[in-house]
Write a protein that binds this DNA or RNA. Sequence first.
DNA 1: ATCCAGGTGATCA
DNA 2: TGATCACATGGA
Length: 293
Amino acid sequence: MIIYEDSCAVVIENVKDFNIHHIFSSGQSVRWKKQKDNSYICVVKDKIINVSQIDDILYFKNTNLDDVKNFWVNYFGLDVNYSIIKKEILNISPNLSHIIDFGSGLRILNQDEWETLITLILSANNSMQILEKVVDNLCSRYGDYIGEYEGEKYYSFPTPNKLSSLSLDELRECKVGFRDKYIKSTSTVIYNNDIDLYNLNKLDTKSCLDNLRELSGVGEKVADCVAMLSMKKYDVFAVDVWIKRIMEDIYFSNKSNSVKKIRSFAVDKFGDLSSFVQQYLFFFARQNKVGKS
DNA sequence: ATCCAGGTGATCA
DNA sequence: TGATCACATGGA
């Protein structure tokens, strides 16, 4: 991996096991917006960033060399060797080879804990399509205006202080639906620091999940996703409707297994690789509509 | 029109 | 513990 800065972008060459389109259609983030030129734009850390890929070369625009080295490499998991991860997964379960090949460029991002938490609470019994619009509503109304980039206005994700100050009606106007009380409660707890969200990553996985589960609107699945997507806890296996379908297709003989059973089966089987397996499975199942029509 | 969407919390046996 | 249900919203 070679990193340097040229006149119009910071460039990383020789990037393996990385496909920006896999990553941004994997449901990990609903904030990155695809552009007409196949690049993606997002506000992260209160700055507008543009990322694109051509073959095994990545281009980061509107940033600098230090930020790429100190932040973006970690954000995109570029310091993780996925060829080893894939090999180890296949050692455990060789029948996953076509599923790993299908999502060969997936990476687990390292996103902000707070933004991930609220987004995942809003994802409950919701579609990705609508979730994206709800998050956009919250950002454009209650986030900070960051600036304009190529003719488009961008906003940050609203802070715990801001969200906790909103009334249930104001939240409903952003189309959060019945999750209004979850957002109100959880943002208040985080704002008051009753749960130290930004230090949960220092705890062991079980304690981390237990803390998350105390928050309103956070159950097994959301806690697993927050731990995996923002706290580098990879010995968790989030089971949603898609994962349940494809896991039963591959590993079970019937379709009436409890979420808890599937979850513990996977964590026992895959250990610290559980979240990576979950990402490959989810991507394959959703893209191919496994178990649908 | 009816069902479903990256589920959770409350209730009841 | 385990099963069942309501819950806002909008797209297919």
